[in-house]
Structures are given as structure tokens and as C-alpha cells.
Simulated assay, not measured.
Amino acid sequence: MISGAHVILYSQNAEADRDFIRDVLDFPGVDAGGGRLIFKLPPAEVAVHPTDGPPQHELFLMCDNLDSQLAEFRARGIEITRPISEQRWGKLTAIRLPSGAELPLYEPLHPTAHSL
């Protein structure tokens, strides 16, 4: 029986991104050895979308109120890298990780599966 999902983010500054996830996003975690932290994620869901290009995977964090979440991030000095865009499925933006990578987040306007 499948008991969970494990997501890996590859980073050019893994230590700084781990600190950000732990200290800024406040995700609890465990040390898997050698300082390799593994974080508990909020409830999750997976979607499969068609593509004409090569297969790829993406990670988006979801929030209930994007405007208030961004206000909190701004107050903590977190860079918002994209203006909020209205998509048919939700409100989308992204924040900057210490490594320079973007981490998209959105407020869904569609039914969610993560609480089933």
C-alpha cells in the first residue's frame, strides 16, 4: 500500500533552501543524516496534465488566501517573483528561494482533493 509521496527539490544552494523551508515556511522536518532534512508537507494532491513536450514535474504550494499569504511573505522580506495572475483554475504567483529558484504558489478556484 502506498503510504505517502516524497518530493525532491534539486538546489544549487540546498542548505539555504532547507533553512528557508524550515525557518520561513515553518515546515517541521527530520534529519535523514548528514544534515539532509526531510520536511513534512501540508496535505497534497497530484494531477496529470497532457503535454506535447517532454514529460516534466512541477511543485506548487497551495494556500487558502493568496493575498494574505503574500502580505505575510512581504512582511518577512520574501521576494515575490511574479505578479498574481488569474488563471481559470486559480490565482497564481511565485516566491524566490535563497538559491534563486522560484517556488510557485496558488489559491485554487477548483475543487481540491487534498482533504478527501
Rank of each mutant, 00 (worst) to 15 (best):
Q87D: 09
I84S: 01
E107C: 05
I80A: 04
P43Q: 11
R88T: 02
F27D: 01
A44L: 07
V46R: 11
D26Q: 14
L103C: 03
L105H: 06
S85D: 02
I95K: 12
E102F: 06
V7L: 15
L66A: 06
K40D: 12
G33R: 02
Y106W: 05
E107Q: 15
Y106S: 08
E15R: 06
I8R: 09
A94D: 01
Q87G: 04
R82A: 09
N13D: 15
I78S: 09
P111S: 11
L103Q: 05
E72W: 10
W89A: 10
L37I: 13
P28D: 13
T112D: 06
A113E: 08
W89Y: 15
S115H: 15
T51V: 14
I80Y: 04
T93I: 10
N65K: 02
G35P: 03
F39K: 10
G29R: 14
D23S: 11
W89D: 10
A5W: 11
F73T: 05
P83A: 09
D31R: 07
P98V: 03
A14V: 11
H57V: 13
T93E: 10
P55V: 12
E58V: 07
S11Q: 10
D17Q: 02
P50S: 14
H57I: 13
G53W: 01
P54Q: 10
T51F: 10
V30A: 14
L25K: 07
M1C: 04
R36M: 03
P98G: 03
L37W: 15
R36K: 06
L109R: 08
L97D: 06
N65I: 02
P28S: 14
Q69K: 14
I80W: 06
A32Y: 14
C63S: 11
S68L: 15
